[in-house]
């Protein structure tokens, strides 16, 4: 291809945007609406996941040992637990550390009367899990280890978090499916309008002897620009909305921040920006290819 033809093709792609202003605006509006819903949903769902993940990390399992168990056996038990795939981290808490922590958390000045550690059997392992749904399997295993006296865990919390995780997964799948269906419907409608506008133009090009590539290229460039703009607009709106909502929460509900941690706008946009731009450009690319292809067999 000649350089002048290449530049001509690119120039035509840009000019097409203005030649069919109503089609351009309709396409941008369609892609923007779909990606706005997608972005909004993504921001909400990732924050939910973030909150649940934080809750899971706080949730732990404590393992206590038989009275008088030797230090070497305690170490062996620690190694066995650490090998388990569902274990994210394991931390040994000595009896003295446990007593110090208990004093600080609950007794404070009332602890002054104690001269010795009243809970000498409180040495334990604190275990955090990768996946809270695996808690019951781990607990069964831990109870079967010889030398383990007691395993402390919260079954309700684990079940609730597992349930929330499953719910988020189902809701995600459901909403993504609905969004996809709506997007395909809207985009196919827009493409149909585009076809009627372009049919004659494509036919003329083909009669004169244009190759499929020559006919298609300006439309593809046009489609990709539309996709890029269609993705950029909702990203800008969501960025502004996210910051506004976060500021509002911090200002009006400061207590909420203490036990719910939200993602920063950067954390959300690190993924949302490339994914939205990719989807936008992809839709524009495929939409234009499909639109033009129907008329290339002239």
């Amino acid at each position: 291809m000649r350089i002048s033809t290449l530049f001509y093709t690119i120039r035509q792609g840009f000019r097409n945007l203005f030649r069919n202003k109503s089609f351009t605006l309709a396409s941008i509006a369609t892609i923007s609406s779909c990606l706005f819903l997608f972005g909004l949903f993504y921001a909400v769902i990732t924050n939910f996941q973030h909150i649940v993940r934080n809750a899971e990390q706080v949730l732990g399992v404590s393992v206590f040992f038989d009275e008088g168990l030797e230090d070497s056996r305690i170490e062996e038990i620690g190694q066995l637990i650490a090998k388990r795939p569902e274990v994210a981290s394991i931390h040994f808490v000595s009896a003295d550390e446990a007593w110090e922590s208990f004093k600080t958390d609950y007794l404070r000045e009332y602890a002054d009367g104690f001269t010795e550690n009243p809970i000498p059997q409180s040495a334990n392992y604190q275990i955090n899990l990768n996946d809270v749904s695996m808690q019951s399997a781990l607990v069964t295993y831990l109870k079967s280890i010889s030398g383990v006296r007691e395993v402390n865990y919260s079954e309700i919390a684990a079940t609730t978090l597992t349930g929330i995780n499953a719910l988020i997964a189902y809701v995600s799948i459901g909403i993504i499916a609905i969004l996809l269906a709506v997007s395909i419907f809207l985009i196919s409608n827009t493409v149909t309008i585009g076809i009627s506008v372009r049919k004659e133009e494509i036919n003329i090009m083909k009669y004169i002897g244009a190759t499929d590539f020559f006919v298609r290229s300006p439309f593809v460039i046009e489609g990709m620009i539309i996709g890029l703009i269609g993705a950029g607009i909702p990203l800008g709106i969501i960025y502004f909305l996210y910051n506004t909502v976060m500021d509002y929460i911090v200002e009006r509900f400061p207590a909420l921040i203490n036990f719910l941690s939200f993602l920063t706008v950067q954390e959300v946009f690190n993924v949302l920006t490339p994914v939205s731009l990719g989807i936008g450009v992809g839709i524009g690319f495929l939409g234009s290819i499909v639109t033009v292809r129907k008329h290339l067999r002239v």
Partner: peptide, 20 residues
């Protein structure tokens, strides 16, 4: 793929002009 090259040797004029 050879049709475009073939058509470049043919000029075509229609009743309805078919201009862009």
């Amino acid at each position: 793929r050879k049709i475009p090259k073939f058509r470049r040797n043919i000029g075509i004029v229609f009743q309805d002009f078919r201009l862009l």
